[in-house]
């Protein structure tokens, strides 16, 4: 059986909020190392991969592999009943037809209990090869969100160009064009505000802004975001959590 207690329900709330507009039904795969999820959007353009390590739970118990097939809209409805600071306990049997969720406030004088029906989801699983990326950029997640939102007003796609000292986001559309250039810099007082670039070789790739704007819903999970780019390889957008991550992969636009 699964029993997993999360100190802050907000972690799961933010994870679900980050991915629910990209995928609707998905398996939460539970085993002794933690809870993981991999799902592609309907058009097979984007993929989300989420991992919550057992270290993020206390206690965590999962005797055997359990796949929890969950409709994320349903889960969102139930999680609305939880405060971010509530303690959240997830429970499921070995071959479950429902997932039990208990929310307790920090004073421990209120507890709410919900059961959510599970579904059988036959999901494709993709093998994601280890990639040595040409460029890795770490920037504030709020900055990335602002850039994607602003440029999406002008165009459907953005070109990301990483060079040794800066990363440039540019787009052009019917009403005109726009670009944002971020120079590499280190903010010693507020490290989360820094922009860093690790470059093997300069790279320039074009991506759909609709998906990037969607990924940015994960900004609440982490003050920084990591973009990994290589020519003709899906973009990796990673939000790190204390005991896990949410990663998005986005297929590039190709050809002229």
């Amino acid at each position: 059986m699964l029993e997993a207690r999360l100190e802050q329900a907000g972690v799961l709330k933010k994870v679900v909020e980050a991915i629910k507009d990209l995928v609707q039904d998905c398996n939460f795969d539970c085993n002794d190392s933690g809870i993981a999820l991999q799902a592609m959007d309907n058009s097979h353009v984007a993929l989300v991969s989420m991992s919550l390590s057992h270290e993020g739970f206390s206690p965590y118990r999962c005797d055997r592999n359990i796949a929890l097939g969950i409709n994320l809209n349903s889960l969102t409805k139930v999680l609305r009943a939880a405060q971010n600071e509530d303690i959240l306990t997830l429970k499921a049997a070995d071959s479950p037809d429902s997932l039990n969720l208990v929310f307790e406030n920090t004073e421990r004088d209120r507890s709410s209990e919900y059961d959510i029906k599970l579904m059988d989801i036959d999901q494709e699983h993709l093998g994601i090869p280890d990639t040595d990326y040409s460029a890795t950029v770490v920037l504030p997640s709020a900055e990335f969100q602002r850039i994607c939102r602003d440029l999406s007003q002008l165009s459907e796609s953005v070109t990301i160009e990483a060079s040794k000292s800066s990363v440039k986001f540019s787009c052009s559309g019917d009403i005109g064009n726009g670009s944002v250039n971020l120079r590499q810099h280190q903010d010693l007082e507020k490290p989360d505000q820094s922009t860093s670039i690790e470059l093997v070789e300069p790279v320039s790739l074009t991506f759909s802004l609709k998906y990037l704007v969607n990924f940015c819903k994960a900004s609440a999970l982490s003050p920084t975001v990591k973009l990994s780019l290589s020519t003709d390889v899906p973009l990796l957008v990673e939000y790190k959590m204390e005991a896990g991550y949410v990663r998005f992969y986005l297929a590039p636009k190709i050809g002229d």
């Binding site: 592609m40 058009s43 097979h44 353009v45 984007a46 993929l47 494709e124 699983h125 993709l126 093998g127 994601i128 090869p129 796609s157 074009t206 759909s208 390889v233 899906p234 992969y249 297929a251 590039p252 636009k253 190709i254 050809g255 002229d256």
Partner: peptide, 14 residues
Amino acid sequence: SQQQGRLDSFFQTI
């Protein structure tokens, strides 16, 4: 104009 690629051509189903 550029075509949107799909992940199937980059990642293999396992």
